[in-house]
Every structure is written in C-alpha cells, then in structure tokens.
Design a binder for these strands. Structure first.
Length: 181
DNA sequence: CGATAGATCGGCT
DNA sequence: GCCGATCTATCGC
C-alpha cells in the first residue's frame, strides 16, 4: 500500500478499504466494514478542527494509525486520511493467525473474532501503543484487494450525532459485519 | 431470540 | 459530573 492511498478524503479511502488485506504482526484479515469521519462531522473526534491530547494523531500525516480508548474499556483503530479525516475500521474477515485471535478473544466463534471495532483490536492486539504508527511499514502490512469488492453504503453504528450520514461502508453479503446492514 | 445493565477512561461542559 | 465511534453477561419472553 502506498502513502498516496491514504492521501485522499476518508469517504473515498473507506470505500476503497473494503476487501483490503490488513495484518498487524501477521495477524488479521480482509476489511469488510469501515466508517469515515471528518472535521465537519459532529460525530467525529476532529469535529470543529479542535485538537486535543487524544485526537492529535488525526491532525498528523495520512497513513497512520489513530487508536483511542472507547467507553473506558475497548480500543478502536482508525486510519488517518487527508485533511484531518479518518476511517474507523469496524470489522475484518479473519484470514491470518486465527488461532492467535481465538486465544486473545477467548472464543472459538469465528464470527465474533473481529466483528466490531473493539473486538478486532483485541484480536490483533492493537492498543494505545500503536497510536501514531505508520501503516506503510511493519508491524502493519496491507495489500490491495485482488478484485474490486461490492461495497454497500449505509448509516453508521453506535453514534448519536449525524446519525443519517451515509458513511458506513460494508462488503456486500459478508458474514463478518458487526451488524447487518 | 431482544433488551438492558454494567464495566471504566478521557475530554469536555 | 457526564457522556460516548463498545462488548459481554444476564435477564425475560
């Protein structure tokens, strides 16, 4: 994956991420669900261009991991994009290191390994330690989709602000989404 | 099944 | 203090 891939708006990047193979330390799978956020968006951490200690990575260069703590318990992985926009990675189709994911997640249910932003971070062992890391080099590895995936667009999950924005992108027919479209 | 309470952190009002 | 880009356990039907 080239840096130019991320040097576009999160809406475009999120769409193109569907079907991409993502690994962290060799563990991962295909991205099947992602959401886009930007400074104009009330649901975004970068809303109003206000930089804080938590969201500072979003204001940095595209192509980096922005990891934040959610509800005091879970970690969520985002990819930084152009103009302080970002893509929240919400679900993977497990492909690599499935046994490792099972151990970390404490379940054998393959549909629950990476189906949700908190779950996939636990499965890949992504934490605050990865915040600010480049996605273009190890331990991250990304490979473009072999063929263009069929992508669906719908409303985002679990937010209260701007609930009607069509900024959730999913792989059509995937069994590994955090929720049905 | 579906609904809901509870865990627990950081940033804001 | 309060709320959230969440997940799990545990209810009740």
């Amino acid at each position: 994956m080239k840096r130019a891939f991320f040097d576009r708006h999160a809406d475009i990047v999120a769409r193109d991420l569907i079907g991409v193979d993502l690994r962290f330390d060799g563990v991962g799978g295909l991205i099947v669900e992602a959401e886009s956020y930007d400074p104009e968006d009330p649901a975004s951490h970068s809303y109003g261009w206000r930089m804080t200690e938590r969201n500072r990575t979003m204001f940095g260069p595209p192509g980096h991991a922005y990891v934040y703590r959610s509800y005091g318990i879970h970690w969520c992985l985002n990819f930084t994009c152009k103009d302080v926009s970002a893509v929240l990675i919400r679900a993977l189709e497990p492909r690599h290191g499935i046994e490792t994911m099972r151990k970390r997640r404490g379940t054998d249910d393959i549909a629950k390994l990476c189906s949700g932003p908190g779950r996939l971070c636990q499965a890949l062992a992504v934490t605050r330690a990865q915040d600010g890391m480049s996605l273009l080099k190890p331990p991250f590895a990304m490979r473009e989709a072999r063929e263009a995936a069929k992508v669906r667009r719908s409303v985002r999950i679990g937010i209260t602000k701007a609930p009607d924005a069509l900024r959730r992108f999913t792989m059509a027919g995937s069994e590994f989404l955090s929720r049905r479209v």
